[in-house]
């Protein structure tokens, strides 16, 4: 079975599993909705700048929670089974792609929920969608890989936050900056620079992940 077929099967397996036990995905969706609502009733009036920051902070925390389970909550025996059967790159890539899709969904939902209660300040929808896409990819790459690291340790849920937050901050900063452009808080011509930088950071991290993951899984 070649790599792409493996990735495809693993991806299908993830989605089927998620669909069968709906509590995980519905749990994370409820998490987003209740966070948005808590934020809304605490702030009441949310200006564009606060909206921008809140959106990404909610995304950040929801993403950590959503992605954490990808390696941490999977039983050791099942992982052993996968690793005997499949290429480690296929395992990591399928998780990353699946998590990107999940986070994109999560981001869309956060956007809808936040716009519903606090209004929609986005002026350039295309740029914002691009930021959302690059953001969910970047979050997914970082958090998936860090969750693979954290899963090896005993106290993994604390470690997950400690390890991933500092690593993800450059991506988060670029995202806040990029979406501030699309909301009209910032103007300037260097938006292309930031998009390519974000894409480059995503690429570097995915390359590092693919190179390093085979060392991580063998026990």
């Amino acid at each position: 079975m070649n790599l792409f077929a493996q990735i495809f099967y693993l991806l299908r397996k993830e989605i089927t599993l998620e669909w069968r036990q709906k509590y995980a995905i519905s749990g994370i969706l409820l998490y987003v909705l209740s966070t948005v609502f808590i934020v809304y009733i605490s702030f009441q009036n949310i200006g564009p700048q606060v909206w921008n920051v809140l959106f990404w902070v909610i995304m950040l925390f929801a993403s950590v929670n959503a992605v954490m389970k990808s390696f941490v909550q999977e039983s050791g025996y099942r992982q052993l089974y996968y690793f005997q059967l499949l290429h480690p790159v296929a395992i990591l890539l399928s998780k990353m792609i699946y998590n990107s899709l999940l986070l994109l969904l999560l981001g869309g939902l956060t956007f809808l929920a936040l716009s519903f209660v606090a209004g929609n300040p986005v002026q350039e929808a295309g740029n914002f969608a691009l930021a959302l896409f690059l953001g969910s990819t970047g979050f997914s790459i970082t958090f998936t890989f860090v969750s693979a690291i954290a899963a090896k340790a005993d106290n993994s849920s604390t470690l997950m936050a400690i390890l991933s937050f500092p690593v993800v901050i450059p991506i988060l900063l670029l995202l806040v900056n990029l979406s501030a452009h699309s909301i009209g808080l910032l103007s300037g011509t260097d938006i292309g620079d930031k998009i390519s930088l974000l894409a480059a950071v995503d690429l570097i991290l995915v390359a590092m992940g693919l190179v390093l993951f085979p060392f991580l899984w063998r026990d």
Partner: peptide, 17 residues
């Protein structure tokens, strides 16, 4: 092994930082 993996990954994110 795990800390070596994290060290390399962290260094890769430190350069853009």
């Amino acid at each position: 092994r795990v800390s070596a993996v994290f060290n390399i990954f962290a260094f890769a994110s430190l350069v853009p930082l």
